[in-house]
Design a protein around this nucleic acid. Sequence first.
DNA 1: TTTCAATGGTTACGAATGCAACAAATATGG
DNA 2: CCATATTTGTTGCATTCGTAACCATTGAAA
Lengths: 150, 150
Amino acid sequence: MPASDALELENFLPYRLNRLADAFSRDFSRIYKDRFGLTRPEWRLLATLGQYGTMTATAVGQHSSMHKTKVSRAVTELERRRWLSRAENPLDRRIDNLTLTRAGLEAYRDLVPLAHGYEESLLASLSTADRKRLLDGLAILEGVVLRKRG
Amino acid sequence: MPASDALELENFLPYRLNRLADAFSRDFSRIYKDRFGLTRPEWRLLATLGQYGTMTATAVGQHSSMHKTKVSRAVTELERRRWLSRAENPLDRRIDNLTLTRAGLEAYRDLVPLAHGYEESLLASLSTADRKRLLDGLAILEGVVLRKRG
DNA sequence: TTTCAATGGTTACGAATGCAACAAATATGG
DNA sequence: CCATATTTGTTGCATTCGTAACCATTGAAA
C-alpha cells in the first residue's frame, strides 16, 4: 500500500510537463524524422536559422536551449547536407556565422506548413476560450522560468 | 535574413513545452541526483511505487510514460540497492510484483518533502489566480493528449 | 609586449537511450 | 491437445547525449 504522505505524481509540475512535452515532441518528431531524416537538434537548428537568419552557434544554443555539443554536431550534419554554410568572421576567427543555403531554406519552407498543421491539429478540438487558457498557462510558466534565471 | 513566412518558435507549442519541461526537470533532477545518486528513470520508479505501492513493471511504464527498457534497468538498479524487491506472481510467472523495501520507503519519505518544496518554490511567486490559470492550462493540454490517444 | 584568463567551438569518452531480437510464460484457435 | 500468437520482461547493439578536456583565438592585466 502507498505511503500515506505520498507525492501525487499526476499533480506534480515537473512530472506533468515532462509527460506532455514528451508526448507532443515524440509525435511531432515523426514529421521531420520520417520525411527529412532530421534529428531533433537538427530540426531545431534549421528552425532557428530559418526564423532568424544568420546566427552563431552559441546564439543558436542559447535561443533553443541546446547544449553546445548538440549544436556543434547538428551544424556538422546540416553542413554535410549542404543545408547551411559557415562564414568565418574576420573580426573574431573563433566564430562562424551560420546561414541556411538555398537547399536549407527550401527544406525549411517545406517543413513550416507541416509544423503549423501539426499544431493546428492539436488545437482543433479546443474552444477559443480553452486555447486562451492554455496559452495563458504556458506564459505563466515561462515567467516562472525567467524569474528563476533572472 | 529570416524567411518571411517563418515559424515563430517561441509560439510553437511543442517547442515551448520542451523548453519548459527541460528547464524544470534539469533543475529538479539535481535534488535526487546529488543527494541520492538517482537517475531520472530511477526516481520515477521510486516515486511511482511510493505512491501506488505494489505494481508490475509494465504498469509502472504505462503510468509514468517510460519505455520498458528504462523501467527494466531502473528496477535492476533499485533492486541492487535493496530499495525494492520482486515477488514472483504464482498465477503468472512472467510477472514480478515490485514493492519498495523499508530502505526504499525511507528514501522515498526523504524525497517527498524535497519534491514538494521544489514545487512550492516555483509557485511561490505566483498569485492564486495565476496558479489556477497555470493548472487550468496544463489540464487542457492533458486533455488534448488524451483525445489523441483515445 | 608577455602572461594569464575568458570565450567559441570541437572532440573523446563514458553513460544513457531505444530499437530489435530474444527467452519465457501464458493465451488462443484449430 | 498442439501449434501459434501474445504478453512480460531482459539484453545486445548502435545511436545519442553530456561532462570534461582540449585547441584556437581574443581580451585583460601586469
